[in-house]
Design a protein around this nucleic acid. Sequence first.
DNA 1: CAGGATCCAATACGATACTG
DNA 2: CAGTATCGTATTGGATCCTG
Lengths: 149, 149
Amino acid sequence: MVKRVSLGDAACPVARSLDGIGDWWSLLIVRDAFDGVSRFGEFQKSLGISKGILASRLHGLVALGVLAMTPAADGSAWQDYVLTPKGEALFPVIVALRQWGEAFCYRPGEPHSALVERSGGKPLAPLVVRSAGGKALRARDTVVRKLSC
Amino acid sequence: MVKRVSLGDAACPVARSLDGIGDWWSLLIVRDAFDGVSRFGEFQKSLGISKGILASRLHGLVALGVLAMTPAADGSAWQDYVLTPKGEALFPVIVALRQWGEAFCYRPGEPHSALVERSGGKPLAPLVVRSAGGKALRARDTVVRKLSC
DNA sequence: CAGGATCCAATACGATACTG
DNA sequence: CAGTATCGTATTGGATCCTG
């Protein structure tokens, strides 16, 4: 689905990630999945997406290994879509997008949902990029090393 | 640019982020900007993108406040596109996507570029979502609290 | 080289209708 | 409800041409 220029064989991991989940809907579906959504209709209602596109994205994410289809927990004849370990590993991506949105995409005082600790309801700490030794790093403290192995 | 359903007024910060930078190219442009790319032609060569789309995306990112246009450093009549503080704040997003791509989008042993510490060249630590108190959190340890303020 | 304008193919997406 | 199929439209994105 979607081919553009095919970043799927790129040597840059950012490009390869985006090639799989960089479309308009996939990360929102994953966000909902983290939020406990698992049924076709729930995704559709939550996202306001058309059924055709939703089915296409859901199947794409399953093919990618981000979601898995399991027999519905309620015994109905259909599927639950649940995060695989590969999908769960997208948690920092979602949190990073959320924190950036909170910080830069709302006017001061404008209400928005917040991700908080389940026990206690306290907000999370801002994500920090760190060196192997644990030191906080700014972008300029890093470099891309081409084609490592 | 692009309207779909307009997530721009959504109450979820993830949706709002994606509404601005969730298209196929914007995050790759930002990645290149972190990598030091600032000229129109450099972006074009690096991304293999058509000029029309590149111009449209560049202007979109400028309008969003992620990039800024400055008089070219080499004295030519054109612009450099450089990250603003809002753009620099996307660093954790890029790093999260990169680490996910490294972990899940390459076969073992397949070469790819790597982001390393500038001084010393050591790889970064994996991003970890933490509570306000510094405790590492898994996705299931968190909940979305609707419409906080 | 930096960019805009135009043309065209592919498709993403929504709406609707249909099936079990 | 969970999808699939079809259709119409808007948009994406590449290629080409044009300008300073």
